[in-house]
């Protein structure tokens, strides 16, 4: 990443994005801009389309229309056109890191091998260099001592920290978090949020789908509230969470503790 501030400092630009599964319209007309180095939280009830929107950003879900730009890579989708080629999709994805709700670590590989896999296979990095990178990242998420363990010996929180290290190993421009703490026991949530907080502080551009409103309020720069595939309201995190303008946002937020005190 270069530190140069271009007049247009947006890292992610999503324009007129549409997605439907059969007759079920999941995203209607989404426009999002994310500045480099900023953290955006996507919130909303289940079925609102927030996870689908996140998955569109790394093409795990292929949109039916619109445009996505991440860094210098742009994809244009429209209904008639063919799916982007598998190789182009893969290249686009290698530039975004994704962290899943259920971790999805590779159970047949050790923690170190999990983290090495991306650089080794996608970037064809030499093994020794990939191992060194992986050890550095495991140190960063506080799991240097677990390098040779298999995932089934780890707690949920440890698994998710490995998954974050695995995504970081590709040195992506953007990190996407899909309900990264929703599958964790309550006492393990903090260690994962801690790692995410550190990443945000380092200037990583992050999109977070979350139900942790207090965390979103504290760490995110911007919050986007989605419902029924539409952006109902967006704004600075504290402002939106403390004083939502829309009734729908207010009703949704009333189900959560929005502060850590």
């Amino acid at each position: 990443m270069t530190g140069t501030v271009t007049p247009d400092n947006t890292k992610i630009e999503i324009t007129n994005l549409k997605k439907q599964f059969g007759s079920n319209i999941v995203l209607r007309d989404i426009n999002v801009k994310v500045d480099a180095g900023s953290v955006v939280a996507l919130i909303g009830p289940s079925g609102s389309g927030k996870s689908t929107l996140l998955r569109c950003m790394n093409l795990l879900v292929i949109p039916n229309g619109g445009r996505i730009r991440i860094g210098h890579h742009t994809f244009v989708f429209d209904d008639g056109s063919k799916m982007p080629r598998a190789k182009d999709q893969a290249h686009f994805r290698s530039n975004t890191g994704m962290v899943f709700q259920h971790f999805n670590l590779f159970p047949h590989k050790t923690v170190l091998q999990n983290v090495m896999e991306g650089p080794l296979v996608v970037k064809r990095m030499p093994k020794a260099q990939a191992a060194q990178l992986a050890r550095t990242l495991l140190g960063k998420v506080g799991l240097a001592d677990k390098a040779d363990t298999y995932p089934d010996r780890l707690s949920g929180g440890q698994k998710q920290r490995v998954a974050i290290a695995r995504a970081l190993a590709m040195e992506p421009e953007v990190m996407l978090f899909d309900e990264a703490t929703s599958a964790l026991d309550p006492e393990l949530v903090a260690e994962v949020l801690g790692v995410m907080r550190d990443l945000a502080a380092e200037g990583m551009t992050m999109i977070i789908v979350t139900h942790e409103m207090a965390f979103a309020r504290e760490v995110a720069d911007k919050v986007i509230f989605l419902r029924d595939g539409v952006i109902v309201e967006e704004g600075p995190a504290r402002e939106l969470i403390d004083n939502p303008k829309q009734e729908a946002t207010r009703a949704f937020l009333s189900h959560f503790h929005t502060r850590n005190d």
């Binding site: 999709q89 893969a90 590779f106 296979v121 996608v122």
Partner: peptide, 14 residues
């Protein structure tokens, strides 16, 4: 688990 494929794809693997 399809999550395994997704994790591989998300890393940029074909």
């Amino acid at each position: 688990d399809p999550g395994q494929s997704e994790a591989g794809l998300a890393l940029g693997m074909t």
